[in-house]
Amino acid sequence: MPVRGDGRELPTDRLVMAAVAFEGGEDIAEARHLARSFLTDLRKAHGVPVSDRAMGMVQLVVSELVTNARKYAPGPCLLTLEVEEGAVEVTVWDSEPCLPVAQAADPGRVGQHGLEIVMAVCRSFAMHREPVGKRVVAAVALADDPIGDEAGSA
């Protein structure tokens, strides 16, 4: 259960999430903007601590996963952000059933590091084939420490 900055739990009767479908013409910056707005609203409207690190990492994960979906899957993709157990679950569904594979680390390789970066910065990472396409789910912790280095607290 998510906990507010004052230590109280968020009400279980209110689902804290955002979702958007991308049809193909949208810029990846729109996905990052949705993530930033979601986290800002989470902090301001719900009192949930969101660290500076979480703010940046969620935007990075969203950017990488939506970029991969737009690049490798035909048709639309769906981005969902949801608070789950002290983390933001970033879920991207697309129509390509083939699961991505992270390449072996190679500091000489230019590009194609997105999936390995996502896997390195997330608390958890999973991929699932769906009846149509696949779903990639990555969770980023909201707070770096028990006090919570809140983003935008200045």
Rank of each mutant, 00 (worst) to 15 (best):
63 S>E: 13
103 Q>N: 06
110 V>P: 00
42 L>A: 11
22 F>P: 10
76 P>H: 03
6 D>T: 01
123 R>L: 14
28 I>C: 06
5 G>C: 03
20 V>F: 00
103 Q>Y: 10
140 V>I: 09
132 V>G: 09
30 E>R: 14
8 R>N: 11
109 R>A: 14
153 S>T: 01
119 M>H: 10
134 K>A: 14
67 T>P: 06
122 C>G: 10
6 D>W: 05
42 L>H: 05
83 V>H: 01
70 R>M: 15
128 H>K: 11
84 E>A: 14
11 P>D: 13
53 R>V: 04
67 T>I: 01
46 H>Y: 08
82 E>V: 09
93 W>F: 11
115 L>S: 04
60 L>K: 02
128 H>F: 10
123 R>W: 04
48 V>S: 04
149 D>P: 05
46 H>S: 00
13 D>R: 12
71 K>P: 07
41 D>K: 07
129 R>A: 15
136 V>F: 01
107 P>F: 00
145 D>E: 12
132 V>Y: 04
140 V>C: 01
152 G>F: 07
132 V>C: 08
24 G>V: 05
58 V>E: 02
106 D>M: 06
146 P>W: 06
85 E>T: 08
147 I>T: 12
111 G>S: 14
149 D>F: 02
66 V>R: 02
17 M>P: 00
47 G>C: 03
85 E>H: 11
8 R>E: 14
146 P>Q: 03
60 L>G: 01
35 A>R: 07
103 Q>S: 10
114 G>P: 05
54 A>G: 00
7 G>E: 10
56 G>E: 14
49 P>L: 01
123 R>P: 06
51 S>G: 04
9 E>N: 12
116 E>N: 07
140 V>S: 02
115 L>T: 04
136 V>K: 05
154 A>W: 05
50 V>Y: 03
54 A>L: 02
14 R>L: 11
113 H>M: 04
78 L>I: 11
21 A>W: 02
139 A>E: 04
83 V>W: 00
24 G>Q: 10
104 A>G: 10
21 A>E: 13
96 E>V: 12
5 G>P: 10
62 V>H: 08
46 H>L: 00
148 G>T: 06
92 V>E: 13
142 L>S: 11
29 A>Q: 12
91 T>K: 13
50 V>E: 05
145 D>S: 15
142 L>Y: 07
67 T>C: 09
76 P>R: 11
128 H>G: 04
85 E>G: 07
